[in-house]
Design a protein around this nucleic acid. Sequence first.
DNA 1: AGTACCACCTGACGGC
DNA 2: TGCCGTCAGGTGGTAC
Length: 265
Amino acid sequence: MPELPDVEGFRRYWSATALHQAIVSVEVRAPGLLEGVSEAAMNRRLVDRAFASAHRHGKWLFVEVTRDGYLALHFGMTGGLAYFKAPAEAHRHARMVLDFDTGYRLAYIAARKLGHLALADDIAAFCRKRGLGPDALRIGRDSFVEQLGRRRGRIKTALMGQDLVAGLGNVWVDEALFQSGIHPETPCHRLPRRTLERLYRVMRRVLRVGIREAIQGGGFPSGYLRGHRTEGEPCPRCGMPLRRLRINQRSTYYCPRCQGESGAK
DNA sequence: AGTACCACCTGACGGC
DNA sequence: TGCCGTCAGGTGGTAC
């Protein structure tokens, strides 16, 4: 599930639970998720330290280790966090479990082992190395519009890539395009500047709504595509049956009336 | 530059 | 009940 809004939820969850407690031990249950660091090195870096603050860039979470860089976490498609009082059994899909001297534990969960765990000295350098663009909630409007308008590929592909803007995934790209009235296959450079500016505003709005939902629950406003991702289901805005496309191997849902034609071909 | 396909993993669901 | 294909909110590599 984790796109930007979910990871922002994890950031706040971590901040509210697992800061400022001495780390007693680190148990890595899926070594394959470690990137550029051994379990032993992870222990050396974390044990007897504490986490001081949590930061997010795109879909990555960076947790500051007191005066010694960051633990970097990516949640793949199925990741999450669970904070609980030991000795409760950690989740069945826990891939790393941190024990604190307070008797609490924090588990990093990833049913499919598609996530990543790493250490980073510097967030900006780490993101640069991985080819991540600016975070979707921090990029400026003009930069967004200019860079997107220069691309020749399909708008959905451009937004899904983490190089131009980091944080959007399949669901939130579909949502932003739906609410902007843009067909997902439209070549970027065919979109007028005003339309890209609208997309920018809509992207920020839907992400903020997503964050609120990720943190408080309560569902999405009516008129959101989210929750109606089924072919043939009526469009939540106009009632027209929704369509499904395959773009970059990913299911893409859109409304043929609200989002018109792509202008491709 | 852009796209298509494969790989990495596991779980849930529908059809036979 | 079992087996099989397909799908799932991610990413990275490779080949055209």
